[in-house]
Amino acid sequence: MASSAKSTSFTAVRKSVQMGDEAARLVTLVFAGGILLITLLVVAVLWDHSSLALYKFGFHFFTSQNWDPNSDEFGALPFVYGTLMTSFLALLIAVPLGVGAAIFLAELAPPKISSILTFLVELLAAVPSVIYGLLAIFTLVPFMRDTVEPALQSTLGFLPFFQGQIFGVGYLTAGVILAIMTFPFIISISREALLAVPREQREAALALGATQWESTFDIVLPNARLGIIGSIFLGLARALGETMAVTMVIGNDPSIKASLFAPGYTIAAVIANEFAEASGNLHLSALVALSFVLFLLTMVINGAARLMIMATSRKGA
């Protein structure tokens, strides 16, 4: 090499730096690969342990309403229905409340009040679910049984959803407790999304003579829509998989009823209740098959969320 001693030492330094880059690339690649590995492992384990039930019942497993461990009959439908219905009810309640509260915190509240409330919201998001379950058993269930559900029945009782006997525990109560649990997530993330909207967007609307509300509703919300959609799907993911609190108030009855007052069951709740004392290999395998269904449900819903976000971002700006 025709280079001086000084520049060779530089080359050596460059070499070692480049090796450092290479090492960092490998290490981070391994970490990233771990994500894929875990996902594959989950699928493999679920598939392996559920194969007994899936082999025995086949597709019938997903369409059967019959869940009877004593006679080795297992069908997933009541649990899928219960999971989807309680999550749907939760979002129905939590989305308008959560987005509304986020608008207040991000756009309207004085900074002091906003920061205190935001702190409380984040605290709520961190409360363990068993505590929400206790809250539900001691206050929500009696309140639903004695006040809310009779009121619904007397006003909207002509709809099949609000007919039948009132127990206090059931789909609606589970939906309400799930709404209470998901809405801190929706507030917290929607608020961040609203705060991230550039100040110039608000000012541009105001400078055209828009009122504060017009600027918020017409301009700020559309700007923040991706974050808000994201918060809703995160809330949905929590609602779908929530186990403890739902188990305590759903009523644990594997059947499908039109009435929201009726007791039901969810996938997560039945796994928590029956796994430890499963009556045999087939029962165990059926429970794992249920968790496989829950896994697929969350995958499908997340995929749908992605598609929706892609579609709206192409149409908008």
Binding site: E200, E203, A204, A207, P222, A317
Partner: peptide, 20 residues
């Protein structure tokens, strides 16, 4: 204030079209 801003328009440093 909304009537005032209708009469006195504004253009900002960074172009800020709405996402529309």
């Amino acid at each position: 204030v909304t009537a005032l801003r209708r009469r006195v328009g504004m253009v900002f440093q960074k172009s800020n079209p709405f996402p529309k």
